[in-house]
């Protein structure tokens, strides 16, 4: 389903963001400065396969490369080295509400965000009520999203991106949004999708939810795979390591 072959992702720190005219000229004429750039490998030699129906958890400390890996898989970034092969339609939930426009109302944003996720107009028309009902935001439909609380934004975004049963679902630490009732509801929604055969890539710092949802875990650290395999083993090893460091 997803084949990640020896993927490496390189960033050039500092220089990449400095796009002033001055720096461009310096780089153009001064070859020495060009060599001095500091390279950073966010991912290096990452190889693993995800089979259909797998629920793979990604764990690791902040900056381990988990989110970068998700971006590479979803096609937002092209890997510097190696390749990623994906069979099937991906529904990314990398960051909830990234496609929202604050000036538009919730109603308008449902269509905009739906279009961004690749849904058709007919599909959105037919699922509109379902989205609204799941989001519990019926009375705020005509309010601009910029006036929403972050919990409300997350609820709306979650409802839109889970309205299809995607073949592959990419989830980056989002089950912690909303109130307890909504957390429970969204977790159940995820579980029912998993039961329906959806392949899931799941990033979380909550080992509990990883243990609950995943059948495989990949532990990343400094862009490299430290360990992968059975959920329980990897989680325990990870937990022990974290404790030792403290």
């Amino acid at each position: 389903m997803i084949r990640i072959n020896n993927v490496g992702m390189r960033f050039n720190l500092g220089i990449e963001k400095d796009n002033s005219l001055k720096m461009v000229f310096i780089r153009l004429f001064d070859k020495r400065k060009r060599i001095k750039k500091s390279e950073f490998w966010a991912l290096k030699n990452v190889t693993f396969n995800v089979e259909k129906g797998d629920v793979v958890g990604l764990i690791g400390s902040n900056g381990a490369g988990k989110s970068t890996l998700l971006k590479v898989v979803s096609g937002v970034m092209k890997p510097t080295e190696g390749s990623v092969e994906v069979d099937g339609v991906i529904s990314p939930m990398i960051e909830l509400g990234a496609g929202f426009d604050g000036d538009l109302t919730a109603r308008e944003n449902i269509y905009l965000n739906g279009a961004i996720l690749g849904y058709s107009k007919e599909f959105l028309d037919s699922k509109f009520d379902e989205i609204v009902e799941f989001s519990e935001l019926k009375e705020f439909l005509d309010v601009p999203v910029k006036n929403f609380s972050s919990g409300m934004v997350a609820k709306l975004a979650f409802s839109i991106s889970t309205i299809v049963d995607p073949e592959i679902l990419i989830v980056d630490e989002i089950l912690s949004v909303g109130d307890i009732k909504f957390q429970e509801k969204s977790k159940n929604k995820m579980l029912s999708m998993i039961k329906g055969g959806t392949t899931v890539l799941y990033v979380s710092h909550s080992l509990e939810s990883i243990k609950e949802l995943c059948n495989k875990v990949v532990w990343l650290e400094h862009g490299k795979v430290i360990m992968m395999g059975d959920t329980k083993e990897v989680c325990e090893a990870y937990y022990d390591k974290q404790l030792k460091n403290n």
Binding site: D101, D103, L104, E108, Y111, L112, A115, I116, G118, Y119, S120, K121
Partner: peptide, 16 residues
């Protein structure tokens, strides 16, 4: 393929 998205993006610009 992305006709609907294109339409939505244009409409967003108008509405905003």
């Amino acid at each position: 393929k992305y006709k609907f998205l294109l339409q939505q993006l244009v409409m967003r610009d108008f509405k905003v």
